[in-house]
Nucleic acid binder design. Sequence first.
DNA 1: TCCATAGTTAAAGTATTCTCGAATTATAAA
DNA 2: TTTATAATTCGAGAATACTTTAACTATGGA
Lengths: 129, 129
Amino acid sequence: MEALNAAELLAALGHESRLAIFRLLVEAGPEGLFASAIGEKLTLPPATLSFHLSHLSRVGLIRGQRESRFIHYSAEFSTMDDLIAFLTDNCCQNEVCLPKTAACATTEKRRSRLVKASTRTAPTAIDSE
Amino acid sequence: MEALNAAELLAALGHESRLAIFRLLVEAGPEGLFASAIGEKLTLPPATLSFHLSHLSRVGLIRGQRESRFIHYSAEFSTMDDLIAFLTDNCCQNEVCLPKTAACATTEKRRSRLVKASTRTAPTAIDSE
DNA sequence: TCCATAGTTAAAGTATTCTCGAATTATAAA
DNA sequence: TTTATAATTCGAGAATACTTTAACTATGGA
């Protein structure tokens, strides 16, 4: 996987159709789904579906693999994980967070998996493994 | 806070400047920062900064509060938390995830805090308390 | 009151993204 | 072969989003 921009990942998910596709694949788990199944569930025209699938693939959130005439898509869980880690990393300057902010509480657990890539004032890239 | 769309939250974060603003505020913690301090750190023209601050405010990711001549912004941690919960909710159909997918592992911990709002094929809203 | 500062809003131009029909590629079956 | 199916790429129009200058509002101090 390439070094990628967190903003790019978030922008990719920041669209109803792409988010729906991604959630479908997250729910489906490692087995994933065929493109046609996704298209049926979401009733998207083939060209539109393909556009969004390739966008999600490009940023590394999903992965497609041809199987005979079909293409089999699955979520890239590690990318999602890196993204979540990025969002919560260095939360509250690593001080103890307020009771409500569970997001911060998980930061420590994720930290070990985190590839450090963000500078403090210009957060930019996530290097995946 | 209003019922909001997860895609809207993600789209709001899916822009370099807004993500940088948000991360700055996440790092700053509950104390937050003045708008002017954000502008200086990121060197954004006032109008541009204001545009992005109001976008982030509108979707509920940050909050601004006037303090004399300054406006004091802080991250809405609960919104970020809801968003992360949404992303990982129902991951792998709640089966045990592969070793790598820590995002799934945290789903259970977050579930208790989750306001159920997503339908399976058309994920849409996050109701924040 | 008048001026300076912090920040927002308005408006308009520019750029980017989204959608979907039509054409195209890849595979498989008749 | 020829035909059918699964999916992608092309291309052009429509819709959104981004940036910026200029004008405006709000607050505080001289």
